[in-house]
Design a protein around this nucleic acid. Structure first.
Lengths: 142, 142
DNA sequence: TACACTATTTATAAAGATTATAAAGTAAGA
DNA sequence: TCTTACTTTATAATCTTTATAAATAGTGTA
C-alpha cells in the first residue's frame, strides 16, 4: 500500500507524522488529478476545519524535499502537486546508449492543448530525453 | 534580421507597432538569457521612464498570442520569456498518417528536471503526440 | 498633412498564490 | 508522564499578474 510506504519514508527521514500530513498524503495518493495546494486545502476542510493554508504549503514542500511529491508548473496561476508513481520516461545517453528511467508525471496538459489546437482526438504521446550520462561526460573531460 | 521579421509579423497580424513594443522585442531578441517581465521592465526603465509594468505584461501576452514569444515556467516565482525560434512538436494521425505542427512552450522544465535527477547533461528531447485527426474521426463516425 | 477611429499606454487598484512570523499546540522519545 | 523541538494555526506581508478607466498615440483615409 502506497500510503504505508510513504509514511515509512517520512519516518526514515525523521519527519513527524501528523494527522494533517497523513491526510494530505492520502488525498494526493487517491487523487487521480493533479491538485493545487488550494484543491487540497478545500478537500480537507471537512476533516480539518481549522487547518491553515500555510500547513498545506509547508507540508507539500516537505514532501517534495523528501521526494514523495512532485511540483508541476504548467504555466497557469498555481502549482500542481503529484504523488510520485511509476509513470516514467527514458533518458538516453547519446554516447554509450545507456537508458535511465526518468519519473515524471504524465504530460496531460500537453495532450490537452494539442487536442485543443489541432482538433485531434489524442490517444497518447511518447517522449525521450537525450544527453550525456555522467560517466561518459567524465570520460570526455580527459 | 530577426527584429525586422518580428515587426513584419506584427504588421501582418494587425498589431500596432509602438515604441514600447519595438523596444521589448529588441530586448528579447538581443537577450541571451530568459528574462522575466520585471527584468524587461527594469531594462527599459532608462529609455521609457514612464512605462507601466502592465505594458510589459500586456505586450508579452500579445507576442505570445502571435507566436513570437514563448512563456517558460521553470517553477520559480515568475515566468520567463523567450523569443521563439523554430522549435515545435508533431501531432500524428494514427489513421491516415497526417502530421500537424504543434507549437508548445515549456518542456524546458522536463529537461531541467531530468538533468537534475539523472545527472545527465541533457542535449535535447523529442516528443510526438498521437491521435486521430478530425477528418478520420468523422469518417469513423459513419 | 490633418482627421478620426480605435488600439495602446499609463497609473492605480485588485486579485491570487505563496511565504514569513509568532504564539499555541502536539508528536515522539526518554 | 514529561520534555523538547517540531508543527500548526492565524494573520499579515510579499510578490506576480491582471483588471479598469482615463489619457495618449498609431494608422488608414481624405
Amino acid at each position: 500500500m502506497e500510503l504505508k510506504e510513504a509514511l515509512d519514508t517520512l519516518k526514515d527521514t525523521g519527519v513527524r507524522i501528523t494527522p494533517q500530513r497523513h491526510a494530505i498524503l492520502e488525498y494526493l495518493i487517491n487523487s487521480m488529478s493533479h491538485p493545487t495546494a488550494d484543491d487540497i486545502y478545500k478537500a480537507l476542510e471537512g476533516k480539518f476545519p481549522n487547518m491553515s493554508v500555510a500547513t498545506v504549503y509547508n507540508n507539500l514542500r516537505v514532501f517534495r524535499e523528501v521526494g514523495l511529491v512532485k511540483e508541476l508548473t504548467y504555466g497557469d496561476a498555481s502549482s500542481r502537486f503529484d504523488f510520485v508513481t511509476t509513470h516514467h520516461y527514458h533518458v538516453i545517453c547519446e554516447s554509450c546508449g545507456k537508458i535511465v528511467d526518468f519519473h515524471y508525471p504524465g504530460l496531460d496538459e500537453v495532450e490537452h492543448l494539442a487536442s485543443h489546437v489541432t482538433g485531434f482526438k489524442i490517444s497518447h504521446h511518447r517522449m525521450e530525453i537525450y544527453g550525456t550520462c555522467p560517466e561518459c561526460a567524465s570520460k570526455e573531460a580527459h
